[in-house]
Amino acid sequence: MEADNGIEVEGLVREYRKGPRAVDGIDLTVAPGEIYGFLGPNGAGKSTTVHVLTTLLPPTAGTARVGGFDVVKEGPKVRTLIGVALQEAALDPLLTGRDHLRLQATLQNVPKSKRAGRAEELLHRVGLADAADRKVAGYSGGMKRRLDLALALVHSPKILFLDEPTTGLDPQSRSALWEEVSLLRREAGVTVFLTTQYLEEADVLADRVGIIDQGKIVAEGTPAALKAEIGRPSLHAIPRRDADRPEIEGFLARFGEPLESSRDVAIRLRDGLGLTDIVRAVDADGVDIADLELRAPTLDDVFLAKTGRTLEGATEEAAVEHGAGG
């Protein structure tokens, strides 16, 4: 490992007893100072990967090095380098926010003289200064997530793991957290490994994205490169009447491959065709369509192209099969 705050994973497998392979042989590299977005539906293996990389779970097979240290053989060294905010905030309801920060600072061996100041600074930074001396039992879900983030930052870690940090947050808190993560990378050069099931989050925040489904990485690259790989835009037509749907499907099939969509009739446009070609054909054939829309590829399209399912659909499936959790 050439730098001291990157992540390298080779052939990582994690099997649960009597369960499927939650992580099924993944390889990935995160460069120092990079924000890596790990995108996938619930139950895809995101959280399990984070648990292994943060030394919370031992891998069944494969190797992982975080900050240059092996997560199995050099767990204590890994833990001094990383900050972690898990999906379910690991907090004690009987302690106050300030108690948590002091405890975390002690555990991470922050010098005694700096502990109180660091706690105060972080409480202000995450907007919890007023609630600092209240027991966590009375915090809202959003407040708990913010405290969890502050705790992850107490010892100024070089590598930050954020497991679905914005799930359950209101849009304002979500934007604030995105801003905070960008700032950490920009000003402190922190490497960020972020899991999410939100396409927009991965798109906005991540330098590179790994898409995981059923324990395997199905695509990896910058958001722009992944979308460019899909290349062609999709065309969405809204029928005026439901009865017109078969006719529109037949008509559009001439211009590209059909896409699954319950809301409209959609196709992936063939190379060389544009919206004007379709509009001309609609006029010429006298097809009755309420609205036509051309959409640039999204990460959801990438997911669809790689797995045959939409991210939303896969999340719902996972919820039915296993309940939430990654």
């Binding site: 919370l56 204590p76 907090l91």
Partner: peptide, 17 residues
Amino acid sequence: RDFENGFAKRLLLAAPR
């Protein structure tokens, strides 16, 4: 209780030894 409510994860993650 710490293991049941998840707080033990914090200790396991934060404690080098």
